[in-house]
Computed example of a mutant assay.
Amino acid sequence: MVVGLGTGSTVAWTIRAIGRMVAEGLDILAVPTSYQSEALAIECGIPLTTLSQNPVLDLAIDGVDQIDIRMNAIKGGGAAHTREKVVSIAARRFVVVADGSKRVEVLNRPVPVEVLPFAAMVVERELVRIGGYPVVRQARMKDGPVITDNGNFVMDVSFGEIRDPATLAQEISQIPGVVDHGIFTKIDELHIAHNGTVEVIRRNDL
Rank of each mutant, 00 (worst) to 15 (best):
T50I: 09
S52E: 12
Q53Y: 06
N54P: 00
L57Q: 07
L57D: 04
L57N: 10
L57R: 05
L57I: 07
D58F: 01
D58W: 01
L59K: 06
L59T: 03
L59G: 01
A60T: 13
A60Y: 10
A60C: 09
D62A: 07
D62C: 07
G63N: 00
V64Y: 00
D65T: 05
D65N: 14
Q66G: 07
Q66P: 08
I67D: 03
D68N: 14
R70A: 13
R70P: 01
M71F: 13
M71T: 11
N72I: 04
N72F: 10
N72V: 05
I74F: 11
I74Q: 05
K75V: 13
K75H: 10
K75L: 11
G76A: 09
G76E: 06
G77Y: 09
A79P: 03
A80E: 06
H81V: 08
T82N: 08
T82L: 10
T82D: 08
R83A: 10
R83I: 13
E84C: 09
E84R: 10
E84M: 13
E84S: 09
V86H: 08
V87A: 11
V87W: 07
V87H: 05
V87I: 15
S88Q: 06
I89D: 06
A90Y: 03
A90I: 07
A91M: 07
R92K: 12
R93E: 13
R93F: 00
F94G: 08
F94A: 09
F94T: 06
V95T: 11
V95C: 11
V96Y: 07
V97G: 04
V97H: 03
A98I: 05
A98C: 12
D99F: 04
D99V: 02
G100Y: 15
S101E: 03
S101M: 04
K102Y: 09
R103C: 01
R103Q: 15
V104L: 01
V104K: 10
E105Y: 02
L107Q: 03
N108L: 00
R109Q: 14
V111P: 03
P112C: 07
P112Q: 02
E114L: 04
E114R: 02
V115M: 03
L116R: 09
L116M: 15
F118Y: 13
F118I: 12
A119D: 13
A119T: 05
A120I: 15
A120R: 14
A120Y: 15
M121D: 14
V122N: 08
V122L: 12
V123W: 04
E124N: 11
L127Q: 12
